[in-house]
């Protein structure tokens, strides 16, 4: 896995401000009677890059989806960029326009070209003039290294290219925080690298990132903190070096042995 990472950036050199980007306190969530997230407390500072891992079904996706209110929490508080997430639609829209999200299955809009995928939200949500939105879109397409695909439809692109388009699409909204939910787990190995490279570049630019992933190489390379979840709770969190070399809880040890073991 770690071979996929070409560069190694020193997390300690990258600045993390003490400004709080996301603050979650005593958050609980249920699906029906099933208690998915239990007493989640978590603070993310601006510029931090956090990797969330844990066994399947532990609530990782649910947690990051609560941050842009794709899922609703029932108890506790989530404050994103100073805006508390309540059922107030204005706040939700505000948070969503600040927070970009990249999904496991890309979720590009298949009926629109790549360029239209990228310009849609800037034009309709941000009210950017079309021409300007297209310039911005091309800028980000160049950044994810596929400007030549602008006129194609998502169905004509490889998985790795689609995921890079999805990242570019989020970036076009100039988000201050990016959420990634297993962005590489639907990809073939040779495509994983191109997506991770894009994400590393983002990290280098100081983007606040929350990333659910099992790419431990990526975690070691860019994260300043790794959060381990199990059964809906945060079991352990630590700097990557500590987390991997010196895990504290038995669950973490078991998980790491399974994931890195062979």
């Amino acid at each position: 896995m770690s071979e996929a990472i070409a560069r190694h950036i020193d997390p300690s050199q990258m600045k993390v401000s003490d400004e709080v980007a996301i603050q979650i306190t005593q958050m609980n969530k249920w699906y029906g009677t099933f208690h998915v997230l239990r007493d989640i407390n978590m603070t993310v500072n601006r510029g931090e890059r956090i990797v969330i891992c844990g066994p399947s079904g532990s609530g990782k996706s649910t947690l990051i989806r609560c941050i842009n209110r794709l899922e609703e929490h029932q108890q506790g508080q989530i404050i994103v960029d100073g805006t508390e997430l309540t059922s107030d639609l204005k706040n939700i829209d505000k948070v969503r326009s600040e927070v970009g999200m990249v999904f496991q299955h890309f979720n590009l809009f298949p009926h629109l070209t790549i360029l239209e995928n990228l310009t849609l939200a800037p034009i309709w949500v941000r009210k950017t003039p079309k021409k300007e939105a297209e310039e911005v879109a091309m800028h980000y397409l160049r950044k994810v290294k596929i400007p030549e695909q602008a006129g194609k439809y998502p169905g004509q692109l490889s998985g790795g290219q689609q995921q890079r388009v999805a990242i570019a699409r989020s970036l076009c909204m100039k988000p201050r925080i990016m959420l990634f939910d297993e962005p590489t787990s639907a990809l073939d190995p040779e495509m994983i690298k191109e997506v991770l490279d894009t994400m590393i570049e983002l990290a280098e630019e100081g983007m606040t990132m929350l990333c659910v992933t099992h790419e431990m190489g990526f975690a070691q390379a860019v994260a300043n903190r790794v959060i381990f979840m199990d059964q809906g709770q945060i079991v352990e969190q630590n700097a990557p070096k500590e987390f991997f070399n010196n895990p504290q809880s038995d669950r973490t040890k078991l998980f790491l042995s399974q994931i890195l073991g062979h």
């Binding site: 842009n68 794709l70 969503r96 299955h105 979720n107 939200a121 989020s170």
Partner: peptide, 17 residues
């Protein structure tokens, strides 16, 4: 797929848009 709704939501599009 549900993902289409989620992607639209995540980009900040309101219901009608």
């Amino acid at each position: 797929p549900r993902g289409q709704y989620e992607a639209a939501d995540a980009l900040g599009l309101d219901y009608w848009k």
